[in-house]
């Protein structure tokens, strides 16, 4: 199958093809390895090897459970769910508390946060990035995760609901509480609203 054609296929089509021929799973992995690795690094304090272990386990579990994929879901929601569960398992095993998380904030992410939290537009973006990183470090895990989904991964409520396996109302409450905690931490700093 020509490379170009495979890249144009949807996730669902690639899942169907993988079930017929294993090699196609490679394309799915390549499609998701970078976003998932960023997600793991943003959410955890794992070193690169640990993060890659989580990613590997995620891919292996995804492959073995391909027949369990519910086609009414987005494949991305499903694989993020597996990754989320794998991350929680790894936390439990290592018993580490996430700190000093990875931060690669592009301008779009920063813009989104500035708009959502009504932050003074005159502020130096590098300074703001540093503050955001510091605040994200001290947020509760569940709140940090939904903020990462919202601002960094661009997930909507439905996708977050499918990933976290929580009703949409609960996701909305989580986001609202996460924003409240984030805003409180932001107030404690010298950032102007």
């Amino acid at each position: 199958m020509p490379e170009l054609k495979v890249e144009n296929l949807s996730d669902q089509e690639l899942v169907d093809l993988t079930l017929k021929s294993q090699e196609n799973f490679l394309y799915l992995m390549k499609r998701y390895q970078q976003p998932l690795l960023f997600y793991i690094k943003r959410l955890s304090n794992f070193d690169p090897d640990q993060a890659e272990d989580v990613l590997q386990e995620t891919f292996i579990k995804t492959y073995y459970n391909l027949n369990d994929f519910d086609k009414s879901l987005k494949f991305s929601s499903w694989i993020y769910r597996i990754c989320h569960n794998q991350l929680i398992d790894s936390y439990r095993k290592t018993k580490t508390r996430p700190q000093n998380i990875y931060s690669n904030y592009n301008d779009k992410v920063i813009e989104g946060i500035m708009v959502d939290f009504n932050i003074d537009r005159e502020i130096d973006k590098e300074y703001l990035k540093e503050k955001i990183t510091r605040i994200m470090n001290i947020l509760d895990f569940k709140y940090r995760e939904v903020l990462i989904f919202k601002f960094f991964e661009g997930k909507d409520y439905k996708e977050m609901s499918d990933i976290l396996k929580k009703p949409m109302g609960t996701v909305a409450t989580l986001i609202s509480r996460a924003k409240k905690q984030f805003r409180e931490k932001l107030k404690d700093s010298d950032i102007k609203f």
Binding site: M29, I60, Y64, N65
Partner: peptide, 26 residues
Amino acid sequence: MSEQNISEKVFEQIKEKKPKPRWHFL
């Protein structure tokens, strides 16, 4: 490990192995 290697490494691990059958989940 490069990102390229992660996919390749996983692929090596699952090679010749099949996903769990559908009836298992049903």
